[in-house]
């Protein structure tokens, strides 16, 4: 995959921008100096034949792999080489080709994992003390933590009830249903930064 692929459609400041992103595997340059700008509301498809480097590009942007050169910026801030969990905290969400789900977790738990970055009980981000606080909160479970968990569960239950009939036949594609559920927390209490969403999807077949 090479070249400048995309020029910004709008004159707005790009939300996500890649500059000269490169990844080599031994002699093979899978991603070759990609420049890409995505503005708010953009919907961009990345297409190419098998082995073109679409997934590699995704992995580079979402922190699962590190680029050999180039940089990624979100809102002008460099985020190259950030860990996936840090990116998730910044609002990055991705799905996987094989529709990864947590096989031993219930549907409820699968959806709740998707809400992980929004949990207040996880917030204490202070190193060392933060995790211990989180452990303490989980064991002690004060009213606010309990209420938060219950609220989330209720949301999920509402979604499951609303989409229950449609969820069931789709049991072989749970990732689809889950990402839907995650995108739409009910009652618009959390707007999920809808104004900031920019989409990027890959597809094997052009057109």
């Amino acid at each position: 995959m090479a070249g400048p692929v995309h020029t910004p459609a709008s004159s707005l400041e790009p939300l996500l921008s890649l500059r000269g992103l490169t990844r080599r595997f031994g002699g093979l340059t899978a991603v070759d100096e990609i420049d890409l700008d995505l503005a708010k509301g953009d919907l961009v498809s990345i297409i190419g034949p098998n082995g073109a480097g679409k997934t590699t590009l995704f992995n580079l942007v979402t922190g699962l792999d590190r680029p050999d050169a180039g940089e990624v910026r979100l809102d002008g801030q460099p985020i190259t080489g950030f860990s996936p969990e840090r990116l998730a905290g910044l609002g990055f969400a991705r799905t996987f080709q094989l529709g990864r789900v947590f096989g031993n977790l219930s549907v409820m738990e699968n959806v709740l994992i998707g809400a992980h970055t929004r949990l207040r009980a996880v917030r204490p981000a202070i190193p060392l003390i933060g995790p211990l606080l989180e452990l303490g909160l989980a064991l002690w479970r004060p009213a606010s933590v309990k209420a938060e968990e219950e609220r989330l569960r209720e949301d999920v239950r509402a979604i499951l009830a609303r989409f229950g009939e449609r969820l069931l036949p789709r049991i072989d594609q749970p990732a689809y249903s889950l990402s839907y559920a995650n995108r739409r927390p009910s009652r618009s209490r959390v707007r999920w930064r809808s104004s900031r969403v920019c989409c990027c999807s890959t597809s094997r077949r052009p057109g």
């Binding site: 979402t62 922190g63 699962l64 860990s83 996936p84 969990e85 998730a88 905290g89 969400a93 991705r94 996987f96 990864r100 789900v101 947590f102 096989g103 031993n104 977790l105 738990e109 994992i113 998707g114 992980h116 970055t117």
Partner: peptide, 17 residues
Amino acid sequence: RAIRDDDVAAQAYGLGL
């Protein structure tokens, strides 16, 4: 349990391994 089942996906959902 999510980390045990699939650590890559768990990371992508924001769980610090």
